[in-house]
C-alpha cells in the first residue's frame, strides 16, 4: 500500500462506540453510546490532546483506537487503512504501530518481571523487530533514552519511584518503534515536579523519533503546555477543535469557555475574587443524553433551537470548528 506523507497516522471518521448495558435484573438491554460520532485526525509527529471531563467518552475513544473495543459504526483509519475490517493477523501487525501509556504506572507493570523482561516481551511476541543478540544493547539504549540508568535493567518495578515507573512504561511503548502513542492520563497521577519531567521527556522523544501522540487528559494546563492541536470532548462528541493557542485565546464554544475559566491556575492569585463561569449541576448521563445540543441543560446561552436541533461541528466564522449554533467570542458577565 502506498503511503502519502500527508496521510494522517490516525483518522477517526464518524466513530460511534459504546457499551451494552442491561438496566435492572430483567431490564431491556440497551446500547450506550459513550462516543456518539467523533471524527479526528493525528498527523505524523503531531500531538493532539483530547480533553474532557469524566464520562465524556475520551477513554472509549482510546480503547477503540487500540482495537480493544469494536466500534458500532464509523471508521478507525491507521495510515489510511480502516482497521475495523482487518483480520486478526493484520490487526496484530497494526497494533505494533500503536502503543499505550496509562495513567497508573503501578498497575500497568507486571511486578514479577524485571525491566529487561518488560521491555523485551514485545520482541518475543513480534519477532523480527530486534534480533536477539541485540536485545541487551537495545534495552540499555532505551533506558538511557528515557532517562533511566541502563544498569538497572535487572531491577523490578517496585524498586522505582512513580515517575521512574512511568519512564519504564514509555521505554516499553517505544520498544516496538510505534508511530503513535496513546497516552491516557499518562501524567495525571504524578506529582507536579515529576509531571513536568515526563512531559519534557515525551516532547524530546517526539522530536527525536517523530512519534505522534493522542494525549488524553482532563488537565487543561497540561494541554496548553503540550498540545499542537486540541479537541474538546463533551458527552460523546467533540464540541470544539483547533490549534491549541487559538482555542485557549479565543474559545468559541460555551463549554470550552466554561472549562477554561474554571481551570485553576498559578496566576489566579491576582484575582482571587474574580468569578469564573459557573455551570449548573453535573454533566448529564450518556445513558440519557439531552435532545438537541447535548450541552444545552448546562449552557447559559441556550435558546429554543438548542433544545431541538443538534449543532454540527463546523466553522461559523470563528476560524476553527465549534459545535454551537451561536459559537462566538466570549461575551463577559454570563456568570450565573
Amino acid at each position: 500500500m502506498e503511503r502519502q506523507s500527508t496521510t494522517p497516522v490516525l483518522e477517526l471518521v464518524d466513530l460511534v462506540a459504546g457499551y451494552r448495558l442491561r438496566q435492572g435484573l430483567f431490564g431491556r438491554r440497551r446500547d450506550v453510546h459513550a462516543v456518539a460520532g467523533v471524527s479526528l485526525s493525528v498527523g505524523a509527529g503531531e500531538t493532539l490532546c483530547l480533553v474532557g471531563e469524566s464520562g465524556c467518552g475520551k477513554s472509549t475513544v482510546a480503547r477503540t483506537v487500540l482495537s480493544l473495543l469494536r466500534p458500532s459504526s464509523g471508521e478507525v483509519r491507521f495510515d489510511g487503512a480502516d482497521v475495523t475490517g482487518m483480520s486478526r493477523r493484520e490487526l496484530r501487525a497494526m497494533r505494533r504501530q500503536v502503543q499505550l501509556v496509562f495513567q497508573d504506572p503501578y498497575a500497568s507493570l507486571n511486578p514479577r518481571m524485571t525491566v529487561r523482561e518488560l521491555i523485551t516481551e514485545a520482541w518475543r511476541i513480534h519477532p523480527g523487530i530486534v534480533e536477539r543478540e541485540r536485545w541487551d544493547a537495545e534495552v540499555a539504549g532505551l533506558l538511557e533514552r528515557v532517562g533511566l540508568n541502563p544498569g538497572h535493567a535487572s531491577r523490578y518495578p517496585h524498586q522505582f519511584s512513580g515517575g521512574q515507573r512511568q519512564r519504564i512504561c514509555i521505554a516499553r511503548a517505544l520498544s516496538v518503534r510505534p508511530r503513535l502513542i496513546v497516552c491516557d492520563e499518562a501524567v495525571s497521577a504524578l506529582d507536579v515536579s515529576i509531571q513536568a519531567q515526563i512531559l519534557a521527556l515525551l516532547k524530546r522523544l517526539q522530536e527525536e523519533l517523530g512519534v505522534a501522540y493522542l494525549f488524553i487528559t482532563h488537565d487543561l494546563g497540561v494541554v496548553r503546555q503540550f498540545a499542537d492541536r486540541v479537541a474538546v470532548m463533551h458527552l460523546g462528541t467533540i464540541v470544539e477543535t483547533g490549534e491549541t493557542e487559538r482555542i485557549y485565546e479565543s474559545p468559541a464554544h460555551p463549554y470550552t469557555q466554561a472549562l477554561l475559566s474554571a481551570a485553576p491556575s498559578v496566576e489566579d492569585w491576582r484575582e482571587q475574587e474574580s468569578e469564573e463561569i459557573l455551570l449548573h449541576g453535573d454533566a448529564p448521563s450518556p445513558l440519557d443524553p439531552p435532545s438537541g445540543c447535548r450541552f444545552h441543560p448546562r449552557c447559559w446561552m441556550t435558546r429554543d433551537r438548542c433544545r431541538t436541533e443538534e449543532p454540527a461541528l463546523t466553522d461559523r466564522g470563528t476560524g476553527h470548528p465549534a459545535a454551537c449554533h451561536y459559537a462566538g467570542p466570549l461575551v463577559s458577565a454570563h456568570t450565573s
Binding site: S193, A196, L199, G221, V223, R224, Q225, E267
Partner: peptide, 9 residues
Amino acid sequence: AASPSARDG
C-alpha cells in the same frame, strides 16, 4: 515553574 498553566500560553 513546573505547574502547567491554562492561563499563560
